[in-house]
Design a protein around this nucleic acid. Structure first.
Ligand code: NAD
Ligand code: NAD
Lengths: 219, 219
DNA sequence: CTAACGCTGTGACCTGTTTCACGACCACCG
DNA sequence: CGGTGGTCGTGAAACAGGTCACAGCGTTAG
């Protein structure tokens, strides 16, 4: 059973969809749905049935052609595939407008992937508890991160501070960063960075909205 | 000159990068840089020089092999390519934790793509000015949106309200939506939706961080 | 009991994106 | 004044991701 499969290469896109499927399945389970077909999941996720089946190949649980996928079993398989075994603590650095919103949102939501500690350089925020999360000074970053086994972090500091924060996080043993600062971070190869760039997303919306408007008016 | 090129088909990915290039160029211009080569831009954007050149083919401004691209000219070309001619107003619906953070961030930032109006169903928020933006009641959505020529919107309401809000926005003439609610919105074909799903992004980070950690420890 | 159905898993194919490679160009240097 | 070096634009190759189609199989209707 320890025969871990030989590092199945899964695309980044697929992982995103698997996470999405899991959330949809959790909702379904709450509604008492026991079984589901790939085409139903596809309709909810906004992709094709073939894609759902292809993605699910990776998680190692096969559905039945007659009843589709058992919702609880599939959720469990996704959990095994996606989640770290013992849960994983997350640090949030930069308790400003965005950081506070994120804290409020993630507090007490997913059982694993909890935000375990917040950090800020502003002395007015240090040592306060914000949305149920203790805010530490930046000096204690390494200490707290190591003490709590934190390997993931969210960066919500101003752009000009982001690289320095990232360096400190990497130094403290962080392996994955969700970065909201509009800056391309330089990190070692073994650290994974995911950027969320709202400005770029908004400009994309603006561009394609204009595009489809023009197209729609002259088809 | 009105010979608009025949609707060059540009991939979504490319538009995102073009937006990124523009932001990088604006920074460079602030630093007094006059010219730049594709490989320099590539290093900053985190992609290859070939990709930069390929992306820039779409905007219709050619660099010089000897001096690269003129920063001000390139910015201007990107502006012409990406931006709506007279600027574009954006509505924000849902002035909660996240909505307020976004308001504070976008206020007075980009000259075009201003958040022109906010909306909320909470009577305590209606008619107040939050981060310099007037908050209207949902009943006035169509009226205000049409009055201000708003075609874009940001949705930051709870998941269960998102579809209804999207419907109202489409009804009010909105063509593009930046959606933060963890729900796949159903909209007509001529409306472009861009999702930002922080939970999925965080789970992706967790997965790939774990992956590279395992890989890194046993290479 | 049999046939027909509908779904899954997966190999083969196809489409869209990225990378490579090369001709053309210009500035600079010897 | 010709060679050299470096860069741009772009056709073509390479790649990745997504779609199609079908064999296999339990279920169920007749
Ligand atoms: N607010 C948004 O909606 C939004 C949208 C898009 C991008 N962003 C990006 O997110 C980041 C934060 O935005 P914000 O609006 O929350 O800003 P903010 O100014 O409200 O918050 C920044 C926080 O980071 C802290 N900080 C500053 N330097 C620090 C350092 N070196 N170490 C630790 N903490 C430090 C500050 O004390 C403050 O609490 C920015 O990079 C911004 O570009 C924000
Ligand atoms: N806060 C975050 O960091 C975060 C992270 C990821 C996703 N999200 C998503 O963003 C959305 C908002 O999150 P939040 O933390 O700001 O929530 P919130 O509860 O703080 O804010 C929601 C706001 O929407 C308003 N609202 C509710 N129903 C409405 C309706 N029908 N019409 C108009 N306004 C309505 C409420 O009055 C409130 O002001 C949610 O869908 C959440 O899932 C938030």
């Amino acid at each position: 059973m320890a025969a871990q499969k030989v590092a199945r290469l899964i695309s980044e896109r697929s992982i995103g969809r698997l996470s999405l499927y899991r959330r949809l399945l959790n909702v379904l389970q709450g509604e008492g749905v026991r079984n589901i077909y790939s085409h139903q999941l596809a309709a909810m996720a906004g992709c094709t049935a073939a894609q759902v089946r292809r993605d699910l190949m990776a998680v190692g649980y096969s559905g039945s052609p007659t009843h589709g996928y058992e919702v609880p079993r599939l959720i469990e398989s996704l959990r095994e595939f996606l989640d770290a075994p013992g849960g994983q603590g997350v640090a949030l650095v930069g308790v400003g407008n965005l950081g506070k919103a994120i804290l409020s949102y993630f507090t007490g939501r997913r059982p694993n992937l909890q935000i375990a500690a917040a950090f800020d350089s502003d002395p007015y925020k240090v040592n306060r508890v914000i949305h149920g999360c203790r805010c530490y000074s930046m000096e204690h970053l390494a200490e707290v991160a190591e003490g709590q086994g934190i390997r993931l972090a969210i960066i919500t500091v101003p752009a000009q501070a982001a690289q320095a924060v990232a360096d400190a996080l990497v130094q403290a043993g962080v392996r994955g960063i969700l970065n909201f600062a509009p800056v391309r971070l330089r990190v070692p190869d073994h650290v994974h960075v995911e950027d969320i760039d709202m400005t770029v997303s908004l400009e994309k919306v603006a561009y394609f909205a204009r595009q489809s408007a023009e197209r729609g008016s002259r088809p």
